[in-house]
Design a protein around this nucleic acid. Structure first.
Length: 261
DNA sequence: AGCTTTAAGACGGAGAAAGG
DNA sequence: CCTTTCTCCGTCTTAAAGCT
């Protein structure tokens, strides 16, 4: 049933929290909430945004009247380079730092999305149509928000950034150390070395500690259920969460939840 | 020097099995 | 059913050697 409600161009958005390409997401029905480690952005029917590449994030889907429908287009580097070569749009400076950039309401977009729907078969569009349709989208977006060019046509890799700030924003995302290293503009070994300097800990150990600390807080003070929070904190399995929690605090998460009542 | 790669051993994590 | 325990495999850590 999920296939009918989500339409993608090129690839399905990764289950992973790492955003490898720029994505355009348009919500037709239902509500999609995007989380970038700091804030939640709610997209209601008719709203859309750009999720920028080389960031971490996740999204939650919520049905409204039993319905959820969204259109997601990947704007990959190959496509963007071709577009830039063909149309040579002015590249303005893009200053916003957020992972998700809202697209302002635009009279062309709803009919553009409508025009897209007939081209889908089994949730995909053939490459040829995908290409021209994405060109059309980009023209619409750039006409309204030309500064987006600075975001789209920046092909550089992430710059060396502050590890402490980055980790505190992103510890809830479950990605490999290699990704974390890339996103902070470092080689794997440089990342590990710098990490140790900042936190006096190895990345994995610190991550687990940080997540467990947050879990303890959420269970004790916010009355949250272990099974509701483990995934949002970056644990992949409840089993591991429970085990790690007990090892850290001497009691299982549910024991803490019961004690607190 | 400073940084990166390599290799072996340690240990964390995902999933199966068991328990409530 | 949901939660905890167990176990084995894969990944990470660590130390040492290789680049530039």
């Amino acid at each position: 049933m999920e296939e009918n409600t989500s339409r993608y161009i090129i690839d399905e958005i990764s289950k992973e929290h790492f955003i490898g390409e720029h994505y355009f997401m348009y919500v037709c029905k239902g509500i999609v909430t995007l989380y970038d480690g700091i804030e939640y952005i709610e997209l209601h029917a008719g709203e859309c945004c750009i999720a920028r590449k080389n960031r971490l994030g996740r999204y939650y889907k919520r049905k409204v009247d039993g319905e959820l429908e969204k259109v997601i287009l990947a704007l990959d580097e190959t496509f963007l380079r071709k577009f830039q070569e063909k149309y040579a749009p002015p590249v303005l400076k893009f200053t916003a730092v957020q992972t998700c950039t809202r697209i302002k309401p635009n009279e062309l977009l709803p009919s553009y999305i409508q025009s897209l729907l007939p081209y889908y078969h089994h949730g995909k569009i053939t490459d040829a149509f995908a290409h021209v349709k994405r060109e059309e989208l980009l023209i619409i977006l750039l006409q309204q928000q030309p500064e987006l060019a600075g975001l789209f046509f920046d092909y550089g890799t992430p710059q060396k950034i502050n590890i402490e700030a980055f980790m505190n924003q992103n510890y809830k995302f479950n990605v490999s150390n290699e990704r974390l290293a890339f996103l902070t503009g470092r080689s794997l070994s440089a990342f590990k070395r710098d990490f140790k300097e900042v936190f006096q800990e190895t990345p994995n150990r610190w991550l687990v500690q940080r997540r467990l600390k947050e879990a303890y807080f959420l269970i004790e003070k916010k009355f949250q259920k272990p099974s509701d929070i483990y995934y949002d904190l970056g644990f992949e399995a409840l089993s591991h969460f429970s085990f790690a929690f007990k090892k850290q605090f001497g009691l299982t998460p549910t024991e803490l939840a019961e004690k607190r009542v």
